[in-house]
């Protein structure tokens, strides 16, 4: 098993430990996860799949719960869509 994984967040590479969730990658990149309907930046709240504040686009698929998804090598994460 690889001990480190590289993903991109909005095109910028981020290195995370294996077993890290996509939320971790987004926070390490210094980004908010999503923009709310009135334009506020939002980050993860519950960390357990309840609140849906951690939604991001993963490999082109929108609205994925980043706290429920593990990072995989080469994954493309976007918070700006």
């Amino acid at each position: 098993m690889l001990s480190e994984i590289i993903v991109t967040v909005n095109g910028v590479p981020v290195t995370v430990p294996s077993g890290a969730t996509v939320t971790t990658a987004v926070l390490l990149a210094g980004k908010a996860c999503r923009t709310s309907v009135s334009g506020e930046p939002r980050g993860p709240l519950c960390g357990m799949g309840i609140c849906f504040e951690c939604r991001v686009a993963i490999n082109g698929k929108p609205h994925c719960q980043s706290c429920q998804t593990l990072c995989e090598q080469g994954m493309e994460v976007r918070t700006d869509e």
């Binding site: 969730t21 939320t23 971790t24 506020e40 939002r42 993860p44 960390g47 706290c67």
Partner: peptide, 21 residues
């Protein structure tokens, strides 16, 4: 309370358990 980095208590623990430094 909606600002990023306001999290749950168990929520933050869960994030640290899944790799957040």
């Amino acid at each position: 309370w909606t600002l990023p980095n306001v999290t749950g208590v168990g929520g933050l623990q869960a994030m640290v358990k899944s790799g957040l430094p």
